[in-house]
């Protein structure tokens, strides 16, 4: 039984036919016992009211400390005005997202799956594995906007502003090609042609031209570098490369590309990786990632790799 079907069983969303055949299997009773007993587990008590009082107190203290009147310098005034405009922009976008009448079109890929999407203006999006984009066809003519969770390569038809929203910031262009990798705490943008403006959550912006790349970590622009680029994103040619990327993110990308599970028995949360791995050779990929990090790994079965 595949993972997705098993997941849907627990949510009570199988068809009658699917359920009947599942319930006839030996594994069914085991799964049922697991689901039931796991549901009886409890975490340590949490007193929401007390916790709220503590937060209120902290907020009051903070406000009291900031109570002094500060005279804004000329530059600060400009900065305040600028960030205000960005807030309006963001609010407008969120409102658009939440309007139920405008149902967005959503396309996603599973582990090991990539897909091409043609947007209403013929702009091309190549979605890498485990990624989701959504956009609204109804408002496309007014605003070319897509939201991205995951990694995608864009070739944008020339025209008005074209924007990609991620949970760490936005990327805007006027007809160009670029790649966005939005995984966990980071969003990376690599510009392949034309110009791209990247704005983080605090309103700081940077303009990228060909062969320039930048990264937003936790909502703040923090790194710029100049990768060698060909005409296409490197993942489309069958490899993924990383520039000082936190190792857990690289491991997740390995899991997504190969549909495997990697169980790490040592603390690697603070380590960073520079390098690349291919998408068509698991043994080579594992060596290229773990050998330079001096981590030993062991392949237990088809899907689980243990690192020590």
């Amino acid at each position: 039984m595949n993972d997705e079907l098993l997941g849907r069983w627990l949510a009570g969303e199988l068809t009658d036919e699917e359920r009947t055949s599942f319930e006839a299997s030996d594994a069914f009773k085991t799964y049922e016992a697991i689901a039931q007993y796991a549901g009886e587990l409890e975490t340590p008590a949490y007193n929401t009211d007390e916790a709220y009082t503590a937060v209120s107190q902290k907020l009051t203290d903070k406000t009291a400390n900031k109570g002094k009147v500060v005279r804004l310098s000329f530059y600060r005034k400009i900065a305040v005005a600028a960030s205000f405009l960005i807030i309006i922009g963001l609010t407008g976008w969120y409102l658009l997202q939440d309007d139920e009448i405008l149902k967005p079109t959503t396309v996603f890929t599973a582990q090991g799956e990539t897909r091409s999407v043609v947007l209403p203006d013929n702009s091309q999006v190549e979605l890498n594995v485990s990624s989701t984009i959504s956009y609204s066809e109804d408002t496309w003519d007014e605003a070319r906007e897509v939201t991205l969770d995951g990694e995608a390569f864009f070739e944008v038809t020339k025209g008005n502003r074209f924007a990609v929203m991620t949970d760490h910031g936005s990327i805007e262009v006027l007809g160009t090609s670029f790649n966005i990798r939005n995984r966990d705490a980071i969003t990376e943008v690599v510009c392949y042609s034309g110009k791209v403006r990247v704005t983080d959550l605090t309103g700081n912006a940077v303009i990228l031209t060909k062969e320039q790349a930048t990264r937003i970590t936790d909502g703040t622009l923090d790194q710029q570098w100049t990768p060698k680029v060909s005409e296409d994103a490197e993942w489309k040619n069958g490899s993924s490369s990383f520039h000082n990327v936190s190792l857990p993110i690289v491991i997740e990308e390995l899991e997504n590309q190969y549909g495997i599970t990697i169980d790490c028995r040592s603390d690697i949360s603070q380590r960073e990786y520079v390098g690349a791995f291919p998408h068509d050779n698991l043994d080579q990929a594992l060596q290229l990632v773990f050998d330079p990090m001096q981590l030993n790994f062991e392949q237990l079965n088809d899907s689980v790799i243990v690192i020590q």
Partner: peptide, 15 residues
């Protein structure tokens, strides 16, 4: 869909 998959994987692991 991603959640369905992770739930399925978790169940398999536990079993």
């Amino acid at each position: 869909k991603a959640i369905e998959k992770r739930m399925g994987k978790a169940l398999k692991h536990l079993r």
